[in-house]
Amino acid sequence: TLFEALYDYEARTEDDLSFHKGEKFQILNSSEGDWWEVRSLTTGETGYIPSPYLA
């Protein structure tokens, strides 16, 4: 399933992933509550992002 970022986000820890509004992601793991592990389709990087920032 693909999701798109609604807002920009700046990583706060080394496990987080910074991203920009409009960036698209593949969800790798959504079992961690509000923090999902994703792969950016723009950069190929993986990390955790806050799920409320996605649509």
Rank of each mutant, 00 (worst) to 15 (best):
E4C: 10
I27D: 02
L54A: 08
N29S: 13
T46L: 14
I49K: 15
D8T: 05
K21G: 03
E32N: 13
R39Y: 06
Y9D: 03
D8A: 03
L6G: 05
S40Q: 04
V38A: 08
F3V: 07
G22F: 08
S31C: 12
E4K: 02
Q26H: 09
R39A: 03
L6T: 13
S31R: 08
A55T: 10
E23N: 15
H20E: 06
E14H: 11
Y7W: 14
E10S: 08
G47A: 03
S40I: 14
A55F: 07
E45G: 05
G33V: 08
Q26V: 14
N29V: 07
S30R: 10
L6F: 13
E10Q: 11
L28A: 01
V38D: 00
F25E: 00
E23I: 01
I27F: 07
H20V: 12
K24C: 11
L41A: 08
F19K: 01
P52C: 15
A55P: 12
L6S: 05
I27H: 02
A55E: 12
S31H: 08
E32F: 15
S18C: 07
D15R: 15
Y7A: 07
K24F: 11
E10H: 08
L41N: 02
P52Y: 15
A55M: 10
T46I: 11
L54K: 06
F25S: 00
E14L: 10
Y9L: 14
F3T: 03
Y53R: 12
D15F: 15
T1Y: 11
W35V: 07
S18K: 05
L41C: 12
R12A: 10
H20C: 13
L41Q: 04
L2K: 03
I27W: 02
D34Q: 09
K24N: 05
L54P: 10
E4T: 14
G47W: 11
S18P: 04
D8F: 03
H20A: 09
E10C: 11
A55W: 06
F19V: 08
P50I: 04
T1Q: 12
D8I: 02
S30Y: 15
H20I: 10
Y9R: 03
A11P: 03
G44Y: 04
T42W: 15
L17V: 15
D15N: 14
T42D: 08
I49G: 15
T1R: 11
T42E: 13
T46H: 06
F19A: 07
A11T: 03
Y9K: 10
S51G: 09
R39T: 04
W35D: 02
T42N: 07
E14R: 10
H20M: 09
P50K: 07
G47L: 05
L54E: 06
W35P: 02
F3G: 06
Y7N: 05
R12S: 10
Q26L: 13
Y9P: 01
L2Y: 13
D15P: 04
L28C: 06
D8W: 04
L2I: 14
S40M: 04
L41E: 06
S30E: 07
E14S: 12
L17R: 15
T1M: 13
I27L: 10
R12L: 10
T13Q: 14
T43E: 01
R39H: 03
T1S: 10
Y7K: 04
R39N: 01
R39M: 09
E4A: 05
I27A: 02
E23Q: 05
L41K: 02
D15Y: 14
I27T: 04
T42F: 06
E10P: 03
D34N: 06
K21H: 04
A5L: 07
G33H: 10
D8L: 03
S51Q: 04
D16G: 14
P52R: 15
W35H: 05
E45T: 13
W36A: 01
D8V: 03
S51D: 06
D16Q: 15
K21L: 07
Q26F: 14
E4W: 07
L17E: 02
R39L: 08
E23V: 02
Q26Y: 12
K21P: 03
E37T: 11
D8C: 10
K21V: 07
I49T: 00
I49V: 14
E14D: 11
E37M: 13
P52H: 15
Y7D: 07
T13N: 12
G33R: 10
T13E: 07
L41W: 03
K21W: 04
E14G: 12
T43Y: 00
G44P: 00
Y9A: 02
S40P: 01
D34A: 08
D34R: 04
S18F: 06
D8M: 02
Y48L: 11
L17Y: 04
F19P: 02
T43A: 00
F3A: 06
Y48F: 11
F19G: 01
Y9G: 01
Y9F: 06
L2C: 12
R12P: 09
A5R: 01
Y53W: 07
P50H: 12
D8Q: 03
T13R: 14
W35G: 01
E32R: 13
S40C: 04
L6K: 12
R12I: 14
F25T: 00
L17K: 01
T46S: 06
S18M: 05
E32W: 10
T13F: 15
G44R: 00
Y48V: 07
G22K: 02
K24A: 05
G33T: 11
W35F: 08
W36T: 02
H20K: 13
W35T: 15
E14T: 11
I27V: 12
A11F: 04
Y7M: 07
K21I: 14
I27S: 01
L28Q: 01
I49Q: 00
L28E: 02
A5V: 04
S31P: 09
G47F: 08
G22A: 01
Y7G: 04
S30N: 11
D34K: 11
A11L: 14
G47R: 05
G33N: 10
F25I: 03
L28G: 01
A11Q: 08
W36C: 03
T13H: 13
L17S: 03
F19I: 07
L17Q: 01
L28Y: 14
E4V: 13
S31W: 09
D15L: 13
E45Y: 06
V38E: 00
D8E: 08
A5M: 05
S18G: 05
P52V: 15
L41Y: 02
L41M: 10
E45I: 09
E10T: 10
T13C: 15
T43L: 00
S51P: 11
T1E: 12
R12K: 12
A55K: 12
V38W: 15
Y7H: 06
L28M: 05
G33I: 08
L28S: 01
L54V: 08
Q26C: 10
E4L: 08
I49R: 01
N29P: 01
F25H: 00
L54Y: 07
P50S: 05
S30W: 11
T13A: 10
Y48M: 12
S30A: 12
T43H: 01
A11W: 15
R39E: 10
E37F: 15
L54T: 06
E4F: 08
F19W: 02
L6I: 08
P50G: 03
N29M: 05
L17F: 11
L2S: 04
L2G: 09
E45A: 11
S30H: 08
A5E: 04
D16T: 13
I49E: 00
S51W: 14
G44V: 04
A11E: 00
W36G: 00
H20T: 10
N29T: 06
E10M: 09
G33L: 08
W35R: 13
R12F: 08
F25A: 15
S18T: 11
Y9V: 01
H20F: 10
E23D: 14
S51Y: 10
P52T: 14
D34G: 14
F19C: 05
S18A: 06
A5N: 02
T13S: 11
Y48I: 08
F19S: 02
A5W: 06
G22I: 01
L6C: 14
G47Y: 06
A55I: 11
S31V: 07
P50L: 08
T43K: 01
